[in-house]
Design a protein around this nucleic acid. Sequence first.
DNA 1: TCATCAATAATCCATTTGGATAGTTTTTTT
DNA 2: AAAAAAACTATCCAAATGGATTATTGATGA
Lengths: 223, 223
Amino acid sequence: MIRIGIVDDKKNNRIILADKLRRNNLFDVRLEAANGEQFLQKMMELKFDERPEIVLMDLEMPIMDGIVTIATGSSLYPGVRYVVLTIFDDDDRIFNAIKAGACGYLLKEESGEIIADILVNLWKNGAGPISPSIAYKILQMIQNPPTAKLPLAGQKSENLFQLSEREKEILRFLCQGLEYKEIALKLSISANTVKKHVINIYDKLHVNNKGHALHIAYTKNLL
Amino acid sequence: MIRIGIVDDKKNNRIILADKLRRNNLFDVRLEAANGEQFLQKMMELKFDERPEIVLMDLEMPIMDGIVTIATGSSLYPGVRYVVLTIFDDDDRIFNAIKAGACGYLLKEESGEIIADILVNLWKNGAGPISPSIAYKILQMIQNPPTAKLPLAGQKSENLFQLSEREKEILRFLCQGLEYKEIALKLSISANTVKKHVINIYDKLHVNNKGHALHIAYTKNLL
DNA sequence: TCATCAATAATCCATTTGGATAGTTTTTTT
DNA sequence: AAAAAAACTATCCAAATGGATTATTGATGA
């Protein structure tokens, strides 16, 4: 049985999709969430071997959207595969989802059987499921890099987490191993303020300690 | 009828593929070539509306290989679609073929029916045909840009700090943002022991806090 | 003008971490 | 078998971190 998670703000979508998958005896839909925050919350409560192996993620959601959720989730739980399942196919969304760590991108148009097939294939072979039209767009992105968005030389990624300039500055210092006091000294502000910024950064990254934050910073190229 | 070209140095391959496609009444295989030079020569001799709309291109060929041929051909005849059809799936070939202007990349493993389906789809919808495992590799290329790899630096740096296996293990957890307690749980040892290991790691790395340690771990590739 | 937001600063409190020190057990090497 | 190294456990204490809350300032925008 492949453990599946479904994240979609429309309850009906979740039910239909879960039904489709459950009809196939290979899938065990055991996590449903209406937005990213709820998803991360539920992941936290699960033990390692109870967590879904594949998570189907809608992109347009209130509170915490799919891309930020994938970015955070793929750092926190690297063993989990995230597959975007959405009706949108614009370049920015595709690109950001991939950068965030999605290993597949399916359009909701695809039929239930195809989705099931593709997920089984992902689980067995590790091949990323990608709708043909999406794959074509990705090719085009490589052929015509949309204004320096392709990080082919390890460039900075988009501001996924909406950090302010000051926050990025402080995150960079944090990543160098500086303590609050030292950062305060460098920036000529008080250590209390540094701490406040750090807490705000944690909020935006949806983490609650330095280790996690640095992990995301390093793996998501936030520096 | 979709006009098809086949470029492959093995005559047998051409015959088998042409047969497969001709069985389907949608295809009109009207150009065969054994290498890039021959292909370009024949293209030159054809009138505009006689040229193939889709060209299936092998990569490994004598005289003029597939990538150079695609690069040249896509400049000379932008209206023609080039689909790579090969047994090779290494990153460099894929990337170069796409950069050269290929609009699809199929592995020869795919069955004749699938190839036919995919070509029809390409012709009708413009969606690029890509084998799933290729698509996955492309994703990974975007996620992990091919950075300049240092040949021996990896191995050297692992020995540089003389970390024991256990210490490396704990450092990896630390880099994932886990706290002492959580690491202790994962390793079934006490948090005190974890702390002791961490202190020993700091000693070896000549640092005195988590930030510094993670910085070295990430930048010196200790993971 | 009023509302909002980013940056600044501070306080209180609980938890985590870093450092020193002192052991025991297990494994490896000599 | 003895010695050495690695792994494990523990306690004390000081420092750093995290979380919540409150408040001021300046810039931006409706």
